[in-house]
């Protein structure tokens, strides 16, 4: 009986393991987004493929916010008038620092590390989250 159970268990485990991909073909988490000069001051630049907002401030420099709502993953929109982020799916609203102002989102928006590479380009690493005060001066 024990042998049978373990045989069935191992087989089921193998089936589940089979369904988990060994190789993920998703987009890279760390990527270059271009030269600092490409980004204007003022309203953030939205990079659609990477789902990030790139902020550039004259005094404080660069910062990158995630455009993925922490609730259920919809893409938030930035409203210049109020300087906040609105999620169209379930109505979450985030402050300019990404804090939850309203709605069901459980966590603030993520901010990602942005660095300058040797060839003078900006690199964003989505695996490294940083506090909203993080800035890169160029």
């Amino acid at each position: 009986m024990a042998a049978l159970c373990s045989a069935v268990g191992v087989s089921l485990g193998a089936v589940v393991r089979f369904l988990v991909p060994s190789v993920f073909y998703g987009p890279p988490q760390s990527f270059k987004i271009g030269n600092p000069g490409d980004f204007p001051y003022g309203p953030p630049t939205f990079l659609a493929d990477e789902k990030i907002f790139v902020f550039r401030d004259r005094e404080r420099g660069f910062a990158v916010a995630s455009a993925v709502c922490t609730h259920l993953g919809c893409t938030v929109a930035y409203f210049q008038n109020d300087r906040d982020f609105h999620c169209p799916c379930h109505g979450s609203v985030f402050s300019p620092t990404g804090a939850v102002l309203y709605g069901p989102a459980p966590r603030p928006l993520n901010w990602f590390e942005i660095t300058l590479t040797r060839d003078g380009q900006l690199r964003v690493d989505k695996d490294k989250t940083v506090p909203p005060t993080y800035r890169l001066m160029v």
């Binding site: 659609a48 493929d49 893409t75 938030v76 169209p88 799916c89």
Partner: peptide, 20 residues
């Protein structure tokens, strides 16, 4: 499908709107 733009409002079919 456009991963960059979430339609606003983004609604599920009616039978899942209670869940939404």
């Amino acid at each position: 499908a456009n991963p960059a733009v979430t339609p606003n409002p983004a609604k599920a079919p009616w039978y899942f709107l209670g869940l939404q």
